[in-house]
Nucleic acid binder design. Structure first.
Lengths: 181, 181
DNA sequence: TGGCATGACTGCAACTGTGCATAGGTGCCA
DNA sequence: TGGCACCTATGCACAGTTGCAGTCATGCCA
């Protein structure tokens, strides 16, 4: 949103956005879940919508991280918001990602289903009675890693591709795992 | 809070609580960060307050889980709220713990310092340049495990000691770790 | 053409939470 | 005793968000 880039995050109220879009503030919330989501150009999440189907077979950790980043909409292409604008907004106002991240854990129920699917496809978890619980733990860990990677990425002034976030998160998880067991 | 047990969570507004305490609603927020915290009897978190010093030396995973549960105030004893009341509130309205859990990740900055301390005390992480990042990942994973354990505990009708939460979270993490690497 | 279901848009009120500014009391020191 | 600093409680205004209910246009069917 160009309003944010012009006036800053706090000064861009929902009322201002609604005015500009020529609708009532109430209508705004019929189309967006939160102000932050709207700024990032992410539409409402519909409960029944199926999430990006995970591509099985690859590395488990990497798949989960990829799934999360997809779900966060980091890679969503919107009609009204260009990718560069979004990156710039994130860089200037990293807080908006905080909301995204907590929404992730809120949607844990749906997401962990997909993670579970990924897990049971690997041999280590195939005969695990407790996959559901472990999927959620795995997800939480991945969300944490993505958070760290995102923060580092946002702090780093240079424009790097979002792929680097994914790589960083993955290696971070693996390093932690190796040292823990 | 007995108001919650009598009227339910949604019907117990901040205004109602303030009225009963004979203060202005604005004053309410001088003493509690959120409505949920107030209901659980948890006072404001002061940024400069030092958190429960972790007892070093024991098992790393178990220590981190214990730290989190302490910080969540699960074990806080309040003058006005009895332990049993709180457990009953949690059982009836598990959502309030969702807030607690997301606050945990919000306070990640402070907490991960303590986790880091725990980690560097163990041999595997003692010479790690990236402990800070890994501490946060470890914390996120632990928060996830505690979340699962809490939910199971809340769903289970029987009154079991909070120790069981800690045990469940710990074994959950360890099982996931073992299967991942 | 008339009646009706549907869906988009909206207004209103309520609630949680925060920043700011202020009033009042209390203790301390000259 | 007078004045000052400080701390608590409070009011006010505002922002984000949600539920409820009402309006209005549209299209479909008899």
């Amino acid at each position: 949103m160009f309003l944010v880039l012009r006036d800053g995050l706090a000064a861009t109220t929902v009322e201002a956005i609604s005015d500009r879009a020529d609708v009532a503030p109430r209508t705004f919330f019929n189309y967006f879940d939160t102000k932050d989501n709207a700024i990032l150009g992410l539409p409402r999440v519909r409960g029944d919508e199926d999430l990006a189907t995970p591509h099985l077979g690859g590395d488990l950790v990497d798949s989960v991280v990829g799934l999360l980043m997809d779900e966060m909409g980091v890679s969503v292409q919107s009609r009204t918001t260009t990718h560069d604008d979004r990156l710039e907004v994130i860089r200037r106002h990293p807080e908006v990602l905080g909301g995204q991240l907590s929404q992730l854990t809120a949607r844990a129920g749906r997401l962990s289903g997909a993670v579970q699917e990924l897990m049971t496809a690997t041999s280590a978890f195939s005969d695990d009675r407790d996959v559901a619980a472990r999927a959620e733990v795995m997800m939480a860990m991945s969300v944490g890693a993505v958070r760290v990677a995102l923060r580092e990425w946002a702090a780093d002034g240079r424009a790097r591709p979002t792929d680097s976030i994914r790589r960083r998160a993955t290696t971070l998880i693996r390093g932690t795992l190796r040292r823990l067991e």
